[in-house]
Design a binder for these strands. Structure first.
Length: 241
DNA sequence: AATGTTGACAACCGCTATGTT
DNA sequence: AAACATAGCGGTTGTCAACAT
């Protein structure tokens, strides 16, 4: 597959899959010139590829620190959880998964996890609604309840402020209630965020709790007795973040 | 056996952010 | 401060193999 650049008389730019010879040549020149100035690398190597294409090939396939095998269960969980929190911030997610690229994670999400996540999300929201309704059935009106603020709980309005039928009030203390034997998971956080209209982007990486885990990390702790048990402790011990 | 469909992955494209001159 | 170059990101498309009809 060859694309003829109209601005150049006889120069052509190759596109499509890379062949082994190109890979070897690119790797050699990256080792000599470093991982930068990709246009220069493309020119110097004599590869009929754009600098951008060279960079992509190196970053997504040739880099020596990349893993090439199947995703592990832990990695899969990690992707699900981080996507739950950050959405399609693939490069951000990839930084938490050493040896995996944003492209790889993006593809993996699309082909393996998207459907599962949607199902989980649906189940979770349904469960949260049921729990909220059963614990505080009298608070199904949606409005900012000033008399509740003195009880260190917060209720929420519909984003359109109408408070009409079908709106739902969820108090924060619903999820910290002893009736609800789970610590805050990203799903709960998401529902609260969604209702309040606040964004989880406000979170930072810097806060530490009493165990030395960041606040973000602590969101990954799942209920004791969780089948995998991998979220029980600060995830840093597993993934060195 | 031929054709169509689907899943998996690599690569490209357009755009934005950041760095350099 | 402005212009340009480079790097990075996320969405999309292309290709190929496996499977179903």
């Amino acid at each position: 597959m060859v694309y003829r650049n109209p601005s150049m008389q006889d120069e052509t730019v190759r596109k499509g899959p890379w062949v082994e010879e190109e890979d070897e040549r690119l790797a050699m020149f990256v080792n000599i010139m470093g991982e930068r100035r990709w246009d220069s690398i493309a020119k110097a190597s004599g590869l009929k590829r754009s600098g951008k294409s060279c960079r992509l090939r190196w970053m997504n396939y040739l880099r020596p620190d990349l893993k090439h095998g199947q995703m592990t269960i832990e990695e899969e969980h990690m992707i699900l959880q981080l996507h739950e929190r950050w959405g399609n911030k693939w490069s951000k997610i990839a930084r938490r998964l050493p040896g995996r690229t944003d492209n790889e994670i993006k593809n993996y999400w699309r082909t393996h996890l998207r459907k599962r996540a949607q199902e989980q999300e649906q189940e979770k929201v349904q469960r949260e609604i049921e729990i909220a309704m059963s614990i505080k059935p009298e608070k199904t009106m949606l409005r900012q309840d000033s008399d509740l603020s003195s009880q260190s709980t917060t209720s929420y309005e519909c984003s359109n402020g109408s408070g009409g039928d079908g709106c739902l009030t969820v108090s924060e203390n619903v999820f910290s209630s002893s009736d609800y034997p789970f610590t805050m998971s990203p799903y709960e956080t998401r529902l609260s965020d969604w209702i309040s209209g606040s964004s989880s982007n406000n979170q930072t990486d810097t806060f530490k709790d009493e165990q030395g885990c960041s606040v973000e990390d602590s969101w990954f702790r799942y209920p004791a007795g969780d089948a995998d048990g991998i979220w029980e402790n600060c995830s840093a011990t597993l993934w060195n973040w």
